[in-house]
Structures are given as structure tokens and as C-alpha cells.
């Protein structure tokens, strides 16, 4: 295994991984949506799949969930080929689809109770409502929920079965900032319980806050897999130090920001005015990687 934990094409499937993918290909007609994907996700890991619209995130995730047929490659999810996953296998999964869970006349609580009854050892629906912040809307019918509340219901339905592996396809679309923080806390508590998670998102701060590793999917291929702080060589990229001196804003690029700031501090009697040290943000390296506006 290489440092980023990424298998090479042709490596055997990893039997210990929660998810192991080799050479995955998926075509729609003559368009290739996923073009030779290799990936291992460890048990207990949170993996975030990033990528622009149409990159193939949903396609990949839905192949892993057993919804879409692959045109090539090998896939194991919890040791099972998703194309052949049965009831027992599905009982270990939690799925939050990008497209949501459909319409219903049932109340939020009834929906959760019904869903819980399909599983061997479900979470208490009341607790799950609390976790996603829907307790006050427990009696409401799905169609009367706001967009963000609906999405929280999708998340609730995804976790009520106490999954070992949770798929989250853009789970926080439409969440307000507070709901998003609450969701992050929920994800962290699920991680502490050992839940493996595959998450897709367009919010880079979300990937950075939650993921052990992120993968950037572009044009059906994984451009890079790394821990969030190292993506795109971010960890070793020159830092930018900026401060105010003689009434003017100064900036300097340096590979040794600690030494630079020490020297800087020696020039000033007290605080260095408006001192800031920054690295390229995840967004900077991400946009560069997917061939964003700069290129």
C-alpha cells in the first residue's frame, strides 16, 4: 500500500476493507461516467468523495450501494459484491440518496418507525429524531417539511437501522449553518461508534472537518486521494505570512513560516500588527486540481 492508502490498478481486492474497488467502469450509452476507479476504504474510516457536477460521484456510490450495474471492474462492499447483495447485506448499510426518499402521507415519526422495523437492532426513532433535530416536527407529514428538514429526515432514515457502513450522497444540501454543525457532530459520534462512512459533498469545509481522507473525482477518475491537510501538496506548499508595517500591508511567501515569524517578532516591540499565516485552502488546491477557473 502506498502512503495515501490507495491501491494500484491490478492490486487484488482488499478483504479487510469496508469497501474495495478495482478498475470500476460505468457507462451510460457511449458516455463513460466512471473510468477505471481503484479505491479501498478502511473499516471505521470517513472517506469524502469530492468532484464537480457530473464527475461520477453518485454513479460510483450507487454502484457500491447495489443500485446501478457496473460495466467493468470488481467491487466488494463489506465483503459482498453489491450486484448480489441480499437482505443480510442490506441490513448492514445505511443509504442517504442524493435524490431523497420519496413522498409519503406518513408523519416523520411513523416513517422512522416503519423503517426501523425492517432492521435487526434499530436505533430508537425518538433518539434519531433528536440527533437530526427533527423532534419538533415529529408529527408533521413529509410533504410539509422545509427542504432542509426533508434532508434531515433522509439522514434520519439512513441511520435508524444502526448501519455499519453509511453512504451519504450530498447529505447536507439545504442545511442551514447550525444544522450543518449539528450534522457534523452526529457524524463524529457515529465515527466514535465505529461506523464507516462514504460521503460526497461540494462543501470543502465539510470534507475537511469530517473526513479522514478525501478523494477528488474528475471526469470519472480519482485525481488524488489524501488526508485533507495534504491534498494537492497543501501541507508542504509555501505559507503566506502577512502583516502591517509602516502603515502598509506586507506579504511574504516562505517555506519556513515559524522561523520567519520569529524573526518578524524580533523587529517589533510587542505584537506584530495584523499578523496572519496562511496555507493554500482546500478550495484553492481543489479548484486547481479539477482544472477550475484559473486554468
Amino acid at each position: 500500500m502506498v502512503a495515501d492508502g490507495r491501491p494500484r490498478p491490478g492490486d487484488p481486492l482488499d478483504p479487510d476493507a469496508a469497501i474495495s474497488v478495482r478498475g470500476l467502469v460505468k457507462r451510460y450509452g457511449d458516455r463513460t461516467a466512471v473510468d477505471g476507479l481503484d479505491l479501498d476504504i478502511r473499516r471505521g474510516e470517513i472517506f469524502a468523495l469530492l468532484g464537480p457536477n457530473g464527475a461520477g460521484k453518485t454513479t460510483t456510490v450507487e454502484v457500491l450501494e447495489g443500485y446501478r450495474r457496473r460495466d467493468g471492474g470488481e467491487v466488494r462492499v463489506l465483503g459482498v459484491d453489491p450486484a448480489r447483495g441480499g437482505r443480510r447485506w442490506k441490513a448492514e448499510l445505511g443509504i442517504v440518496l442524493q435524490s431523497g426518499a420519496g413522498d409519503s402521507q406518513l408523519s416523520v415519526r411513523e416513517l422512522l418507525e416503519a423503517r426501523a422495523s425492517y432492521y435487526a437492532d434499530p436505533r430508537d426513532p425518538g433518539e434519531v429524531l433528536e440527533l437530526v433535530g427533527l423532534t419538533e416536527r415529529a408529527g408533521a407529514r413529509g410533504r410539509t417539511l422545509s427542504g432542509g428538514q426533508r434532508r434531515r429526515l433522509d439522514v434520519a432514515l439512513g441511520i435508524v437501522g444502526r448501519p455499519r457502513l453509511l453512504f451519504l450522497d450530498e447529505p447536507t444540501t439545504g442545511f442551514d449553518p447550525e444544522a450543518r454543525r449539528q450534522f457534523w457532530a452526529l457524524i463524529r459520534s457515529l465515527r466514535d461508534l465505529g461506523t464507516t462512512m462514504l460521503l460526497t459533498t461540494h462543501y470543502l469545509d465539510e470534507a475537511e472537518a469530517l473526513a479522514d481522507r478525501v478523494g477528488v473525482l474528475a471526469r470519472g477518475q480519482l485525481a488524488e486521494v489524501a488526508v485533507p491537510t495534504a491534498l494537492g501538496g497543501r501541507g508542504s506548499a509555501p505559507a503566506v505570512v502577512s502583516w502591517t508595517e509602516d502603515g502598509a500591508r506586507r506579504t511574504a511567501e516562505t517555506a519556513t513560516p515559524t522561523a520567519f515569524v520569529r524573526d518578524l517578532a524580533a523587529r517589533f516591540p510587542g505584537e506584530v500588527p495584523d499578523l496572519a499565516v496562511s496555507r493554500p485552502t482546500l478550495e484553492d488546491v481543489y479548484l486547481k486540481m479539477i482544472g477550475g477557473p484559473d486554468e
Binding site: 441490513a91 440518496l97 426518499a101 420519496g102 413522498d103 425492517y118 432514515l157
Partner: peptide
């Protein structure tokens, strides 16, 4: 047909419900 087009069936198919 409605349950199929609005995703209800798809969602159920991802659960262990027989």
C-alpha cells in the same frame, strides 16, 4: 408508478425489507 418515479421504491430497495 408514483412511488417509482418519486424515489420511494428506490429508497425501500436499499433496506432489508423483503
Amino acid at each position: 408508478a408514483g412511488e417509482r418515479s418519486d424515489g420511494t421504491l428506490k429508497s425501500l430497495a436499499g433496506t432489508p425489507m423483503p
